[in-house]
Design a protein around this nucleic acid. Structure first.
Length: 488
RNA sequence: AGGGGUGUAGCGCAGUCCGGUUAGCGCACUUGGUUUGGGACCAAGGGGUCGUAGGUUCGAAUCCUAUCACCCCUACCA
């Protein structure tokens, strides 16, 4: 049968769409720009969510839920913030439908116009800070460390499943602090949580850094970001953590009494990661055969395929293996479908990214072995059934580590140090990836570079070394290198 | 937002230019049989307001008008 996935070399974005479709992760929906996340895709998000939620709680945060709708007037209270989001907001103007007096169907009831329009949240800073004003009176109420899991809407023109959709799922943390230092530390703590999650769970290496003023979140004083590199050489902003200063406290008049009984505005952070992470994980690991998932986040880590068919002794043995693997905390399933042939199932599970496949047939029963196939390297070997749980547990760790190492190697290979504009353009076009180059620190230079090359500054890396040099565009003095790339 | 394109079965398409039996093909689906260690085969079967509305005509998937939706290429965004 013909290959059903477009090779990456031929058309990377089509490859991505094929993976999403063939691995059964998501569908287009009846609503433009919105996707249906199917069980296989949602299970990945659930695993991410469970782990992140644990990490947030371990760092002292609690969950709450704020409204989907935001009064229009709220959004305009912080000038930069509204400017950042105004162009992509869904607006609710009416609250009732009526039968169409001129034909079939329903129409909006013109009598039911809202006094004040409601905005479907593109992010919740405004409604949350409006609420925090009532919650915070004294330094004793601080810090306030709250996260919410929610959907948000940003009316995008051009969408792609998981990477950019009009509606997406995310978490947004919103914290309030009594000092600037503490708020800055909070933003840094979450930045670190995001980086650890990306590397340890998604096996997606990230560069930690700060955004330039131009790329910063609307309303933030500092934005920390984790930037990942996709296989096509483009960078993906995977998670951001913002130090908001006192901007929202001032906009929403959130003051508290200090220990010295003096009034002051509180200091704020906000931070979020979204279902975009699913897209990033797909693009980091998958190949032309389909999805590749890191074991730690794979909904099914091991699948057992009885050969040629699930019956009799094969099923008995398979069930025993399931029990043993489960006792090692492994998520395992037996394919009991009698209609499909083994070859079809092999291809199917590869397409769906299951990290390990166990083939169990008559030969294995005779020899007391099992065929173990790993998705990441596409290699197969026979293993003894004895002590299989421990062996598979170890194998899953190996796969997890291998995926991370492979992605790290790719990133090193695709990170280039460049010192002149012509080389910059040449590398960007032919090789892609991160380009480490000098920058004079001005927005003018950054914008000019974007105009000349389409590359943007992804971040000022945390581990930036002090090094004097010259800005590639302006020739002015630079104190260190930043990372440029084409971005998603 | 500017340019191009497509709507016919769950999916992918042919048929439309040049109107004329009962609208067809591949995949998928159902049933039966033979198969089964890398995407099986044979046979029989089910499934359609031809995007929607109006018009022309003895007759419309096909021509005309309107309308809706989606996709692709170029500029902004997690």
């Amino acid at each position: 049968m013909a290959k059903e996935i477009t090779p990456r070399s031929e058309n990377y974005s089509q490859w991505y769409l094929d993976i999403v479709k063939k691995a059964d992760l998501a569908d287009n929906s009846a609503v433009r720009g919105c996707m249906v996340i199917k069980p296989s895709g949602y299970a990945i998000w659930e695993n991410m969510k469970a782990q992140l939620d644990k990490m947030f709680k371990d760092t002292g945060h609690v969950n709450a839920y704020f409204p989907l709708f935001i009064p229009k007037s709220f959004l305009s209270k912080e000038a930069d913030h509204v400017e950042g989001f105004a162009k992509e907001c869904a607006v609710v103007t009416h609250h009732r439908l009526m039968n169409n007096p001129n034909g079939p169907g329903v129409v909006v009831d013109p009598e039911a116009k809202l006094e004040e329009e409601l905005i479907v949240r593109p992010t919740s800073e405004t409604i949350i800070w409006n609420t925090y004003r009532d919650w915070i009176q004294s330094y004793r109420d601080l810090p306030l460390l709250i996260n919410q899991w929610a959907n948000v809407v940003r009316w995008e023109l051009r969408t792609r499943p998981f990477l950019r959709t009009a509606e997406f799922l995310w978490q947004e943390g919103h914290t309030a602090h009594a000092s600037k230092k503490e708020a800055e530390e909070e933003a840094a703590i979450i930045h670190e949580v995001y980086a650890r999650f990306a590397e340890d769970y998604m096996a997606m290496p990230v560069v930690k850094g700060r955004k330039t003023a131009n790329e910063r979140f609307a309303g933030a004083e500092e934005t920390y970001t984790i930037e990942a590199l996709m296989q096509d050489g483009k960078a993906l902003q995977a998670g951001t953590s913002h130090f908001l200063g006192q901007n929202f406290a001032k906009a929403f008049d959130v003051k508290y009494l200090t220990e010295a009984n003096k009034e002051d505005f509180v200091w704020a952070t906000s931070w979020g990661v979204s279902t975009r992470l699913v897209g990033g994980m797909i693009m980091t690991h998958s190949d032309d055969e389909g999805l590749v998932l890191p074991p730690r986040l794979a909904p099914i880590q091991v699948v057992i395929v009885p050969i040629p068919k699930p019956n009799g002794e094969l099923l008995e043995v398979a069930d025993k293996i399931v029990a043993e693997l489960q006792s090692h905390g492994i998520r395992v399933k037996v394919d009991k479908d009698k209609k499909k042939r083994p070859g079809f199932k092999f291809a199917e599970y590869e397409m769906r990214g299951v990290p390990v496949r166990l083939g169990l047939g008559k030969r294995d029963l005779e020899n007391n072995t099992i065929e173990v196939a790993r998705r990441d390297t596409k290699t197969k070997e026979q293993l003894p059934l004895e002590n299989l749980g421990a062996q598979i547990e170890k194998l899953l760790e190996d796969i997890q580590n291998n995926l991370l190492q492979r992605a790290k190697d790719f990133r090193s290979e695709r990170t280039t140090v460049v010192d002149d504009l012509d080389t910059f353009k040449e590398i960007l076009e032919n090789k892609g990836g991160f380009i480490s180059a000098h920058w004079d620190g001005t927005t003018e230079s950054e914008l000019k570079m974007k105009e000349l090359t389409t590359a943007t500054i992804r971040c000022i890396p945390n581990d930036q070394e002090a090094e004097s040099g010259k800005d590639l565009v302006t020739g002015k003095e630079s104190k260190g290198r930043v990372l440029f790339a084409k971005a998603y």
